[in-house]
């Protein structure tokens, strides 16, 4: 770490100020990462070690991982929660993209007359608090026998992410040079042909960033999952909270569970971070 900071002075423009700013960036980065680091570390400790004074000197053990992934009858298992989450996230993201791509086309490349109003409508649904809808949703879901099913979460996660996806994709589509679409029209391509052969290959990075963001929000979603699904089809966030116990020490076990729960999204986010930067803002502001 200090070695890295020292090298920063060499690579940067030089001068003590530049060096110090490099060091500062490292310090800020480590401070922000510390809680995550601590969570991961505690997951490899025994409960006694995790409850004792903070220390980095210990014998790493997989004990907690074995315990949280063990299946216990009557309790939500790790495998079940993961597969529930995976289904809800994958299918909802698929449907989001399936509907958002043509919608974004109709709001940018060949826009409907009142495209601004329509876009505002989509965004405005994100301003409506989910709590305002949760009661009727609960009643409707109960009456349709959808409470505690994966299907309900898929529908709701699709609705939750659709506006954001449309908003981001629309911005990406607007960046596709107009001449390209016109060239495709003159070449005789239908709307579907224009989208699949010309537009989508160009906006692929944006598409990936958008899908990733949908995955993050859906994977991490807790409120709807716990309100509407607390007795079947429970997802990973519910499983994590299940590891908090009121008796005995649970810190190490909770850390191991938390690490497992966050790992997929964190890894995906790390891999796709450059695209996310493009996707979040460069696409969002034309």
């Amino acid at each position: 770490m200090s070695g890295g900071a020292a090298a920063g002075g060499v690579v940067g423009k030089g001068g003590p100020k530049s060096f110090l700013l490099g060091v500062l960036a490292w310090v800020v980065g480590l401070v922000f990462f510390f809680p995550v680091f601590w969570m991961v570390v505690n997951g490899f400790k025994t409960e006694e070690e995790a409850a004792a004074d903070p220390s980095l000197i210990f014998d790493p053990t997989m004990e907690q991982y074995d315990e949280v992934t063990a299946e216990t009858t009557g309790l939500l298992g790790f495998g079940e929660a993961f597969s529930n989450s995976l289904w809800a996230v994958a299918i909802s993201t698929f449907f989001v993209m399936l509907m958002a791509v043509p919608a974004a086309y109709a709001l940018s490349i060949r826009p409907v007359a009142k495209w601004r109003d329509v876009l505002f409508f989509f965004i405005s649904t994100k301003f409506l608090p989910i709590v305002a809808a949760i009661l009727p949703l609960w009643i409707i879901a109960r009456d349709l026998d959808l409470l505690n099913t994966r299907l309900l979460l898929i529908v709701l996660y699709t609705a939750m992410n659709l506006p954001l996806a449309i908003w981001m994709l629309r911005s990406f589509f607007s960046e596709v040079p107009r001449e390209l679409i016109e060239a495709a029209q003159i070449d005789g391509a239908s709307i579907r042909g224009q989208i699949t052969s010309v537009i989508l290959p160009i906006v692929a990075p944006g598409l990936a960033a958008t899908a990733l963001l949908c995955v993050i929000f859906a994977w991490n979603e807790y409120f709807l999952a716990v309100q509407l699904n607390n007795a079947g089809g429970e997802t990973v966030p519910i499983w994590v909270t299940g590891n908090v116990s009121t008796r005995g020490n649970f810190l190490a076990k909770l850390s191991a569970a938390s690490t497992l729960a966050t790992l997929p999204v964190v890894l995906a986010g790390w891999i796709a971070q450059k695209r996310m930067i493009r996707g979040l803002a460069m696409g969002a502001i034309k």
């Binding site: 922000f32 990462f33 966030p237 964190v266 986010g269 971070q273 996310m276």
Partner: peptide
């Protein structure tokens, strides 16, 4: 940068 973006990726419950 990778260190810094991590908190955003963490599940809110976690």
């Amino acid at each position: 940068r990778t260190l810094l973006i991590t908190p955003f990726l963490i599940m809110p419950v976690v």
